[in-house]
Design a protein around this nucleic acid. Sequence first.
DNA 1: AATCAGCGGTTAATCGATTATCTAAGCTCT
DNA 2: AGAGCTTAGATAATCGATTAACCGCTGATT
Lengths: 348, 348
Amino acid sequence: MSTRSRSVVTIADVARACGVGTMTVSRVINGKKHVSEEMARRVEEAIARLNYQPNEAARTLKGRTSRTIGLIVPSLSDPFFSQCAHAVQQVAAEQGYMTMLFACEANRSVEAEELSQMRARNIAGILIVPSSENSLEQLQELRRSGMPVVMIDRTFAGIDAGEVMVENLEGAFRATNHLIDHGHRRILCVGYDREYNSIGERIEGYKKAMQTAGLSQQYILVKRGVPIGPKVVASLRSAKPPSAVFTLNNVTSVAVLSALKREEIRIPQQLAIIGFDDFELASLLAVPLTAVRQPATELGRHATRMLIDSLRTGNGGERMTSRIVLPTELILRQSCGCEPISRIARPS
Amino acid sequence: MSTRSRSVVTIADVARACGVGTMTVSRVINGKKHVSEEMARRVEEAIARLNYQPNEAARTLKGRTSRTIGLIVPSLSDPFFSQCAHAVQQVAAEQGYMTMLFACEANRSVEAEELSQMRARNIAGILIVPSSENSLEQLQELRRSGMPVVMIDRTFAGIDAGEVMVENLEGAFRATNHLIDHGHRRILCVGYDREYNSIGERIEGYKKAMQTAGLSQQYILVKRGVPIGPKVVASLRSAKPPSAVFTLNNVTSVAVLSALKREEIRIPQQLAIIGFDDFELASLLAVPLTAVRQPATELGRHATRMLIDSLRTGNGGERMTSRIVLPTELILRQSCGCEPISRIARPS
DNA sequence: AATCAGCGGTTAATCGATTATCTAAGCTCT
DNA sequence: AGAGCTTAGATAATCGATTAACCGCTGATT
């Protein structure tokens, strides 16, 4: 017994307890060869008895890489991202990796700081839902130093990283067409900023549908932080009021719905609405929201597998331009004018 | 130029570039004394030029503790926890700490694994919303080894850790009384398991209100995973059907609302409902939900400050039985029979 | 009989930053 | 002038696990 009360059990303590060298213990821990079964049993017994646990910092320092992947999402309050994060954590855990989860809250300096931490902490690889162009350079530098990177949901051009996306254009196209099929002619496209390509693709989908139908396009696109609901309400009082809106994401849908409720505007009679990105409570809303569902869980799963693959094969140093694009699904509810299913099923 | 292309810039590289010893560089990085301003400038310039970043693993190994706190929550899909996590991350970042966020998804073995990782990674301190009694022993052991621990939202008896809670009993008492004030006599208390003391306290609040009013209590308490909505619906067809329900948390509220909607049961006419734990979309629901709001952000803030305080003062080794209890707030909407405010404000 | 291969194990170097200890120089004060 | 103190910096030990290099032994090969 030394005087040190820190009670940190090291590999040397275990070795001493068994009367062997540290290398032998290390071999047992890492399942390497050249250890007799008998010895392995003794060592394992000692590990259990002393409640020894390898110091991750030491392992990382020597091994140059931790068995940890970093996940950066813009926000945890958006269920789309939290669902995604959940999937990442599950798959990573199955594969023996820990996940460090960071929410940058769409703050570019926070995101930069987090990326910088990734390098400092010898993260094995990065999963990111990039939220600011500013990080591009930093990501590129990480790529150059051999760090595998997979981008989820959004991508930046000019960076050699994996990509896992959804069919934004197609989803938006179908959503817009659904409104057109319901007889709407003046359809407003609403959303926050267009700094992410995913939003851009959705806008393209809307545009394509409108053009194909020979309709003129109407937009309300604002910067993050600008209240968007009131603008939509105001547009209803304009000369050519829209009869329907297509909201470009979750947050927008909620913002618009709030404003419409506040103003007691009837959905879908006065204004129909269809949103990109579905969420759990969408079906319990005053008027259940028709929405384009994104496969958040699948997105997270695929991205994690892609990252871990390139970790395993060690080709993070090479090009890693895999790209997976997942389909979306249009969930029909009542906000676009479809008949409520329950009414059809059981007329009262 | 050596042959190593790993491109890891070390403190030695920086020192060499300035023609000084590593100690000097280290002093500059950590803002210690005994370095001339002139020298400090040169070193900082070299750090910037070489894009040097201290290796966190090495720092941790030597310093015995990382500037990282671990946060374990049961789930990320529950907005209460994600809001809380957000607050933790913010406060921690302000204080120069990183947050490792883990979601255990109420899985006890995952929680155990995560706690074990905490120790292996020399986490400075732990914030936890404990979800399984099984972790108690593990937490106690971590406490004994001097690791500061703060429990959020729920606590376990017999563990010497900080606690940041809400006034569960009081909140539930007021909620139940609100229903009683509306003339309800048969009030059903519904929720998942009672393995957390926070749920237990809410039940106590309900019980106290009912007893005080001389009413008899009715419960539906099920294990996690059991569908609870149908049970509530079934109770309406019993001999003594409840006229109101008090749901013990977020998840329960949503489950019950779903079932009521499916069965087309009118709220609050056929059944009034009041929930513990408010959420963003509560006001946009078909019938806006009256709920007991918990100060999730404040909870996270206080817990983080408490943890970092004990990290600073280094009294994590001592007793750390601080306890903060935050008040709740009853948010009146329409699910309990109150007049819709908008109707009052502007009769149409 | 001599060499070789593999097994089971030890010793010591290493990863990168921190830090105790030490040297040298500059300064004040009697 | 020399003791005493502060400043500026160097050297080397240290944290705990991994791993290259090495050693002695046994049994097989030629």
